[in-house]
């Protein structure tokens, strides 16, 4: 039997998706108040991060790993480059459009994704050096993963027949707690980042009294 890359734990995969969605939300929030060219870049980046994060939930392996690695490092390089340009031309408009806290948090989230992807790709490269047919997909790549405890199953059996073993209540609760913990961490970081953007500045709209609507 050839060695195969074990599937990524479903909770870890979901956390990667959360990190990408969190960074995407911050980048989308930065669209508001940014100059048009920068707003377009933030919108495209945010949309790509949202799409990648969602696919992360739905796939066994994070999709488009090389491209994603480049894409999550792009904002970091872009941020540094723009700050250097802004300093060189003394542009206050540019520096205002690049608030430090939201960008630092989105960069942190992107870096987490980059490190995880880098480790995953490195593990695959190592394995390809051992396998007789490196071009063939691993069991983890070839096999669909239907349930949260797939990471605990043997990965060397691509032909596992249906039905997959049902998870126990304890495993289910552990899985949901893992997902909730990840969501809480990302929500806390994202909220902190959003609070320093224009989108997070509006405290309330309760003073709005639209015709025919009774606002509480």
């Amino acid at each position: 039997m050839t060695p195969s890359l074990p599937p990524l734990s479903p909770v870890l995969r979901i956390w990667l998706g959360f990190a990408s969605l969190g960074a995407g939300l911050i980048h989308l929030a930065l669209v508001i108040g940014a100059p048009p060219a920068l707003a377009t870049a933030f919108a495209l980046l945010g949309a790509a991060e949202f799409a990648w994060g969602t696919f992360c939930f739905a796939r066994d392996e994070p999709p488009l790993q090389r491209l994603a690695l480049l894409f999550v490092l792009l904002p970091l390089l872009g941020w540094i480059g723009l700050l250097l340009v802004a300093a060189a031309v003394h542009s206050t408009e540019l520096t205002r459009a690049l608030p430090a806290l939201p960008l630092a948090i989105s960069t942190l989230l992107d870096t987490v994704v980059a490190v995880a992807l880098g480790m995953r790709m490195r593990a695959r490269r190592r394995l390809d050096g051992v396998r007789p047919n490196p071009g063939l997909p691993t069991a983890a790549e070839a096999e669909a993963d239907p349930d949260p405890d797939a990471g605990q199953r043997s990965s060397g059996d691509p032909g596992t027949p249906h039905p997959v073993p049902e998870s126990s209540p304890a495993q289910t609760v552990r899985f949901l707690l893992g997902v909730a913990l990840g969501a809480l961490i990302i929500a806390a970081l994202t909220t902190t980042g959003l609070s320093a953007t224009e989108a997070g500045q509006f405290p309330s709209v309760h003073e709005l009294n639209l015709p025919g609507l009774h606002l509480h």
């Binding site: 969605l21 969501a183 405290p203 709209v205």
Partner: peptide
């Protein structure tokens, strides 16, 4: 308001992650 957005976003990612990623 802004806290609503955070709650909507947090709810959405948990529901999406479990709906798309589990079972």
């Amino acid at each position: 308001n802004a806290p609503d957005n955070v709650l909507h976003f947090a709810s959405s990612v948990v529901l999406l992650a479990v709906g798309l990623g589990a079972e």
